[in-house]
Design a protein around this nucleic acid. Sequence first.
DNA 1: CATCTAAAATAACAAGTGTTATAAAAGAAT
DNA 2: ATTCTTTTATAACACTTGTTATTTTAGATG
Lengths: 186, 186
Amino acid sequence: MARKESITIQNILDTAFSMTREEGFINVTARKVAARAGCSTQPIFRVYKNMDELWNAVYLKAVSFFQDYYSLYPRTGKAPFSNMGMAVIAFAREERNLFELLFISQNVHRKSMYEVLNGDAGNVVYEINLAKSLGCTNPQEMFMKMWIFIYGAACMTLTGDYDLSDRETMELLEHSYESFSGNAAR
Amino acid sequence: MARKESITIQNILDTAFSMTREEGFINVTARKVAARAGCSTQPIFRVYKNMDELWNAVYLKAVSFFQDYYSLYPRTGKAPFSNMGMAVIAFAREERNLFELLFISQNVHRKSMYEVLNGDAGNVVYEINLAKSLGCTNPQEMFMKMWIFIYGAACMTLTGDYDLSDRETMELLEHSYESFSGNAAR
DNA sequence: CATCTAAAATAACAAGTGTTATAAAAGAAT
DNA sequence: ATTCTTTTATAACACTTGTTATTTTAGATG
């Protein structure tokens, strides 16, 4: 009937997503994606109405990527929110550009930080319930404090002002939880 | 001898700085500054070699602006780092674009976060000494923890995920210091 | 008032952006 | 093999950016 497509929507999206990881969301332009995919800009506009649609698809893929990253991250900490902190801070270090896209840059029609973090697995709810089960009297407030702390460390990772090892970070997170619980070990 | 200048270097810098505050650093372009200053782009390049020079001048002005803002901020908190936290979080709320420029965006030849924060007045050193005088055994580590916390809250202010009142923020900061000291009030 | 010099305005260049019109090509169907 | 349809490539449009060449203009000096 007609010519067979050689550049699929998957090719375009995968290329744009890889570019976001490696070069940052800001560099995902029509011509750059085309060059990296080895085609002209035309196939992009065949499968996406415009660049906004592609950017949104990249954003959604980044959300999924983060949630997979989080769910696969090893859970070695005992204190509530410590594993959450480890995963988020590691993500900020290893996926700078994705972290910036998901948690810092204020773009149009983006999901809230909480929505991205909690995800389908209910990551936040899980940690809150864990805290409650361990005797935390106000787990919501505990989440707020721990998240402010985790988020601060993650953002400082991007600026280069936070550079502790995984072991040190785990200690910091565990101690912080104990401190906020009123059981500071000092 | 010659024609008198009608657009001074101060006009240009003040215009560019106001634009940064109101519209963000990213919008400081040659043509936009010129339009707002009511002239062509030519006077800009008479007083500045190129846009990079102007951007750098704007950045330095933002540093001074922050340090003045900090030094004029009322000191009502008793716990070390609480007044620092109040000033930085208020700055993030009231001067979003300047906060982003100074503390988030990773531009060329920028000062470190610590340098901006500490300033000529030695803001950080002051708080560390205060903590030491109040019996803090490791004031350096205390600064790290408190700054991570303050920075997290400030960055979340920008994304809209932190919106506590000044009173609530002060309580949070005072309690955090007590928590990290091992004197949690709960 | 005429002249001269520096400042400002105008216009252009080269490079980048999203997007679209048009032309070429590939390949299935007849 | 020819036809036809869709995909892809090529070019172009309109807009933005920093920067510079050229022209105009303001105003002090003689």
